[in-house]
Design a protein around this nucleic acid. Structure first.
Lengths: 209, 209
DNA sequence: GGTAAAATGACGTAAAAGTGTCATTGTATA
DNA sequence: TATACAATGACACTTTTACGTCATTTTACC
């Protein structure tokens, strides 16, 4: 038996969902709340998984995640929302959601997602998965293997990315400023840049560090 | 009717999959190949979606993706593999896969994933989705909302990240070098840094651009 | 044993950057 | 209406950068 709590401000939807869960074998809705504040103060702790709306009055679903986790670290949280814009999805994932479903998701899919989540997976509708794939491609650096820095050069570049200037790098590596200048010069040549900031930008974007 | 091509070197699995597809209403296996090379030279173009193994002899499934896309830009490609290590998943997503399923995926789930993919979604098993979530958290910058740059400051910072120096920024924004210096000065104060490279690093890492 | 690359270091110089101080104008917002 | 902030621009000054040229030592490889 999977115990579910719903946090959702639209009464009709909340009640519909409660009915669906209780009518489905193996699922029980143990609680439902109309706001995040109410839920946070009254959560029974009996639920295995929480279906959490994002667009709640006052405290949003995303802001609620860390507060819920504070008291119930092991409960699974699935976002259930109409929002599918990039930033909302990113924020939810970063906040620690275990799943992200759209409200138009078919009932059977919703129920199986609860199951999947409890087995350690993350629930997503295919359209959300598609967005996550795109966002992933946008944010993960494309390793550039064409650029081969020497170990010392990599070391220097790493320190530059961490914000050290030439003098600090020299001090840290126990070598002279002149030598660091030389390494930087070689790094510039290999990365085809002409300043520290360009080198740092390229290093981060191309996954050289 | 959904037309599917299978590229998979294990004969038993390939034949089992072919049988499953042809036995299921609405699905037809139009071709199957034991290697990527064979597939690339002989693809009929009749398929809507390709189920592609990663661990193929010679050319790997990941290397095959761009070659397949070259000739068939609109075909959907779902990776079907036993590998679930982080790097393989990342590489597949970056190479442009439309889905990523494990071979142990239940037949019904596999069939519905084909459907989902054709509707523009991305197919993933919940366990893979979970990995993608983790990887996402690892790679996506944590937006720092405590830092509030003015619109002009953001604009300048953006250009610095793109590698422009002070003079180029001034030219691009049709303002004087002195003004750009001033904006940069304010940016430094807000980001609490003292050089372009530090600002650029912080901008990228904290998602300010 | 010679060649190449890496790591170290130096001198010089023009350009750029970083920072302090100041001023004007426009746009909100309390 | 006063106050704050954003955007614009300037002058001065010191430090740092970027780059050219050069040299020594070590390590790796054919």
């Amino acid at each position: 038996m999977i115990y579910v709590t719903i946090i959702e401000d639209h009464q009709d939807f909340r009640e519909g969902l409660t009915f669906l869960l209780n009518a489905s074998e193996g699922y029980t809705c143990v609680d439902n709340f109309g706001s995040a504040e109410e839920a946070i103060s009254s959560l029974s702790g009996r639920e295995d998984v929480i279906l959490l709306d994002i667009n709640l009055p006052e405290l949003s679903g995303i802001e609620a995640i860390p507060l819920i986790r504070e008291k119930h670290p092991q409960v699974k949280i699935i976002m259930l929302t109409v929002c599918d814009d990039d930033d909302t999805i990113i924020q939810a994932i970063l906040a620690g959601a275990d799943g992200y479903l759209l409200k138009k998701t078919a009932p059977e899919k919703l129920l199986s997602s609860l199951q999947d989540t409890l087995e350690g997976g993350s629930a997503m509708t295919p359209s959300i998965a598609n967005k996550v794939f795109s966002l992933f491609k946008k944010h993960v650096p494309v390793k550039n293997n064409a650029i081969s820095l020497s170990s010392r050069e990599s070391e220097v570049l790493q320190l530059l990315v961490e914000g050290l200037d030439t003098a600090k790098v020299a001090k840290k590596l126990f070598i002279s400023i002149q030598t660091v200048r030389n390494h930087i010069r070689h790094i510039y040549k290999k990365l085809q840049v002409h300043s520290k900031s360009q080198a740092v930008a390229k290093a981060i974007k191309e996954g050289l560090v």
